[in-house]
Design a protein around this nucleic acid. Structure first.
Lengths: 349, 349
DNA sequence: TTGAAAGCGCTAACAG
DNA sequence: CTGTTAGCGCTTTCAA
């Protein structure tokens, strides 16, 4: 069931059949229709490999994420996939598990023109691999910002600013001793959040106590463990700012297990606005990360680039420019910090 | 940078180069090494299309899921991907959003040999498409069980039995008026859960009140709304069995919003054992669905079939048999039902 | 507007 | 063990 069968059946050459698929306007409407009918009748679909071998296009883009279990990334995926689907593209979701080896293997596969475009998470991809991507000129956009002079379009937010805002919110609610549970500092997001936290404290002339900054694995369990350590401290903090909601859920569990009330005894601030954040008890106050929108935007940027590549061969300087799109972060206030009674107590009625 | 370049550089024919890739043992170790070195030096990777065009193999399997935001499916995905990766395969994650149109488009693409294997969720795929898959003889395994005489290997659980167990657990804890919030009954899982619920009540000669069986959208919000309706009923139930944890989270929220305590005023039983179930307040008692294991198993079954296809051309009747693997369901008891005081009250101390 | 034919890069008979 | 060569199915010049 190949192009020759169709051609034979239609009494034309394979070239004509090929043309109705690739340049329909170059074929007499009448024969075009006839050939289309025959295709349907024979249930013919062009062989993808043969097509790719000639065109070097696959109709698929790839999204490389570090952890498929994290809702942040699946929501991004949803956004990405949605616009890809509208454009008639398929999305290859690659899950690297933050493993250098898997990462490299995926990129290896993706790079050699096996996909038409790539979206990846900045800071979770080895710089060497990023360089490799640049070199191949594969259209690629990154989600997040990262040090260095990278030639990628990107959609990013300001984790530093988000963390600063979050911590400031805590301060404005009267908390003076504020701890921070960091994520894996190997990742720039976590490092920036830590800096934002520091900045906020500094701006308010609050003590930055190294004992109140502790790291954890970026899981529910990691948050649980870290919070336990913090709370059992001889001198526990009044509030904790936690690098992500996932860990915050674990922390909340830990704090409650210790018999402490949130936010009366200790306040908790998260980061991400995970879709579960409104359902834990107490509902988590957190920083809203517009993940779905990030996915949508990244995908749009990618298609912009891909289009620019195909359409204007006359190097249109305008379209060749990489775009950097900034999405602001806001605080989503719920119940896990800034308890009214507490505030009153602190400020003296 | 193609196979000819490598061949030229090594002073051998393309056949030899091809052989070191496909049948290394047919090449003198010495030249083999030399060619491998040259490949590395030239950073050569075989063209995927050309390869596929010859072999009709792509080294990718696909997993078709109905909803990427549902942790059930991402955990399955994780399991699937893990074994695929170990086998040197890539996983194409396709998210149909339960849309017939997307489904069809994906299958269309996948079917024509563009992937080497397929895993899909039974009951979420149009039977017509399933027939199509069967006809193409693409190795495929389904997760779940479904009516009909399908020729697929499968890994499945017994939703009916799980629901029956869950409801019985509620009954054994003394609840007599038990409501059920169903999922979308279009999906067989939901229908079976409903049946299991009915069966349990019948076995205990308990009333099956149609007013206590209500459906909802399979989201947190859907659960919220359904629970509200149930609770505001003139004659609310003592317990609710909910078709999935996701909806149960919403229901818990709704019940608490109504000023009712769980489980003192009303008990809640979920289904899935979503990874958040142990973190909501109260911790949710639910049916443990071994999703990760389902993913692993499905993937193994798929590779069994793929191997059988390539290795034994001498139709080994044994390996050609489809396998059906059953994974049992168990109740994960936590705090959202069977409160001690309540039980005492019911049974009279 | 159409057809003939030359590849795209690779694999696997087949022959040596 | 290695080389020659005929495809795999399609697209696209180039001629007609």
């Amino acid at each position: 069931m190949n192009i020759r069968d169709v051609a034979q059946r239609a009494g034309v050459s394979v070239a004509t059949v090929s043309r109705v698929l690739n340049h329909p306007d170059q074929v007499t409407p009448k024969t075009r229709e006839r050939i289309l009918d025959i295709m349907k009748e024979l249930d013919y679909t062009p062989n993808w490999f043969a097509r790719g071998l000639n065109l070097n296009r696959t109709g698929v883009i790839a999204l490389l994420i570090p952890n498929i279990l994290n809702p942040i990334y699946t929501e991004i995926a949803k956004g990405v996939e949605e616009v890809a689907h509208n454009k008639g593209y398929y999305t290859l979701l690659c899950n690297s598990e933050d493993s250098k080896e898997k990462e490299a293997a995926y990129i290896e596969m993706l790079l050699h023109r096996k996909v038409d475009g790539l979206i990846f998470i900045a800071g979770h991809l080895d710089p060497n691999l990023m360089t490799k991507i640049e070199e191949t000129h594969l259209p690629a956009v990154m989600i997040g910002k990262i040090e260095g002079n990278w030639q990628f379009s990107s959609v990013y937010t300001d984790y530093f600013e988000g963390a600063r805002k979050a911590t400031t919110h805590l301060i404005e609610n009267g908390y003076k001793s504020i701890a921070h549970i960091t994520g894996n500092l190997r990742f720039i997001e976590s490092a920036e959040k830590l800096n934002g936290y520091r900045e906020a404290l500094k701006n308010s002339n609050l003590e930055i106590n190294p004992k109140w900054i502790i790291g954890g694995e970026e899981t529910i369990e990691g948050g649980y463990l870290a919070a336990k350590r913090l709370v059992r401290n001889a001198n526990p903090p009044e509030a904790i700012f936690i690098a992500n909601d996932w860990m915050a859920f674990g922390a909340i569990d830990a704090i409650k297990t210790e018999g402490l009330r949130i936010p009366e005894d200790i306040a908790v601030m998260g980061f991400d606005n995970n879709r579960m954040s409104g359902l834990v008890e107490p509902k988590l106050t957190t920083v809203n990360l517009p993940v779905y929108k990030m996915g949508l935007t990244a995908s749009r940027l990618l298609f912009d680039e891909m289009d620019a590549l195909t359409s204007t061969s006359e190097k249109d300087e305008k379209t060749d420019q990489k775009q950097q799109i900034f999405l602001p972060l806001t605080i989503k206030v719920r119940h896990s910090c800034g308890h009214q009674d507490r505030i009153k107590a602190i400020f003296g009625e």
